[in-house]
Design a protein around this nucleic acid. Structure first.
Lengths: 314, 314
DNA sequence: CTGTTAGCGCTTTCAG
DNA sequence: CTGAAAGCGCTAACAG
């Protein structure tokens, strides 16, 4: 019908009828029905996004970058939070398929490569951030964990720290696995001794308790690298409560450079991505939109970290 | 068609055909099309959610609570981030209408009561958190700012702080306006002098700079209440850098009790909601679903804060 | 340039 | 209990 034509600025239309249609639409308070349009065009203009936890400062910022880009390009974002639950992640992926989402963006999947790839192949288009997928199943943005961990370890070794510990998280996630493995690799690379008893793990909130235990059981530890800044903040406070001076007795390094990192006391030395989290989200979003309209150019982007030196590990 | 009947477990169906349909569905890898279903039923099972900023720890946690509830009840969540931009907020609301979202949840709107109410009346159902709306336009969850600010001021006055300052944010938001006004009201209530020059405001990241300036220009300040914990973290660090002892010289109080509040050094005294942020999200979500299915029972919920006393203001 | 028509994939109503 | 048919609001292809 003609109305469709003016809505979409498509086809030839006389200015007269065009204006007429617009004015009638306006006075009726008409709103086009995107559901019907989606059914007719087989395009939903919806992107499904999956994160382990919205409330994390890290994922939140990534989401914000992606969200902004999607809306600007006319796409709406459907959000799924897995709560780190594998079954939930699969269910959400299935539902995005039923929603006929034009594309899916998965951040830090907890699914293994084979399973995730199978789910993503069923989607119309997919991009993942820091998740393992088989080539072809999705585009990929990932961080170079080997290089970043090497920077941290090297920094500590060069400032004469001799007994390094790592406080990580579970190994369910790409970064979780990589950082722990790369920590060991980096110790070897820089000739430091590897002590499995100095590798601990905790959940997002457990930095304080875990670091405290580590430092009590192993007073010889003089350097701690943490999976992220929140855990590092716990380690800092644990040092303080145990009377260990930072950086005098112990050096502490985190990951992410969250906003509060430089406000902590002592301020936190940390590994910061070469892109802001928002930019990472926007980058992944852009790759997804390119995949959707078929102009996809690259399949993988690898991002580096830089060491931001502050008081906690000068 | 029959398939529809088995999908929805509706109508009478023989177990034989039922099983047959299911097995065929399975081997074809069939996924029902929710877009078509939405068009036919005039229900989308989608909720539109609007926040000023996903990346804030505060909104993130609220979202997480709401999201979990929605998915559990079969609803998907579409997320809109306003970036504190009024026009963007209106656009998103319009688009949710075009999406025929079954309901809309608005957190901390930047729109004024009249405008917001008009937009919400066009939606199928609406709930707002900490936003001003006209009665009837939406259900409402809000915090009792008057009472919470009184607690903070009373606590400081009773510990003999005589010169209190407030570091807030812009007045574009319900909480922003309320906290600043209630600060003045509470000073009067407890017989403290009101000094407009000790009321400052800054953006989310500006706590350090603003507090530093405040303390330099007004060395007599011995108590600072901040709009939230992130700003308070900046104030803490500003005190440290200026050589002012906390809590000896200056007491600092924040709002929200974010995870890092107790890890700061000194740990932060703060006002915590009687519900976790996640619970607030779930509560609002539940109210929205009740509005959608017509079982709505109450129109407004008011939430109190409690003072969590830590080192920064004992 | 503008009106008509046939779907998009589902639900719902009405017969069989 | 199961098939057939109409219709949700839009787009796209085809005539006028």
């Amino acid at each position: 019908m003609t109305v469709s034509r003016v809505l979409n600025n498509k086809g030839e239309i006389s200015e007269a009828t065009r204006q007429h249609v617009l004015s009638v639409m306006h006075e009726m308070g008409y709103r086009p029905n995107r559901v019907a349009r989606s059914l007719a065009t087989a395009k939903t203009l919806k992107i499904g996004v999956i994160v382990p936890s919205i409330s994390s400062a890290y994922y939140g910022a990534v989401l914000e970058g992606a969200e902004r880009l999607f809306w600007d390009r006319g796409y709406h974002m459907m959000l799924g939070n897995t709560g780190e639950d594998i079954r939930r992640e699969q269910t959400i992926l299935d539902l995005f398929e039923e929603d006929r989402a034009d594309g899916v963006l998965v951040v830090s999947s907890h699914l293994n490569s084979a399973v995730l790839s199978e789910y993503l192949r069923k989607q119309r288009a997919a991009v993942v951030i820091n998740s393992e997928v088989e080539a072809g199943a999705a585009c990929h943005v990932r961080t170079n964990e080997k290089q970043s961990m090497a920077k941290a370890v090297e920094h500590l070794v060069k400032s004469n720290r001799r007994c390094l510990a790592y406080v990580g998280t579970n190994m369910k996630t790409y970064a979780g696995r990589q950082r722990q493995n790369c920590f060991v690799a980096a110790l070897q690379e820089f000739g430091a001794s590897v002590r499995p008893d100095l590798i601990m793990s905790c959940d997002r909130r457990g930095g304080y308790v875990t670091a405290r235990q580590l430092l009590q059981e192993h007073p010889e530890v003089d350097g701690v690298i943490c999976f992220n800044d929140e855990i590092a903040a716990g380690a800092l406070r644990a040092c303080f409560d145990l009377g260990r001076d930072v950086p005098g007795d112990v050096a502490v390094i985190g990951y992410d450079d969250i906003f509060l990192a430089e406000l902590l006391n002592p301020s936190l030395t940390t590994l910061r991505l070469c892109l802001t989290k928002r930019e990472v989200g926007a980058l992944a979003g852009r790759m997804l939109l390119e995949r959707i309209d078929g102009s996809s150019t690259c399949d993988e982007v690898v991002l580096d970290h830089e060491l931001v030196v502050r008081e906690s590990a000068p």
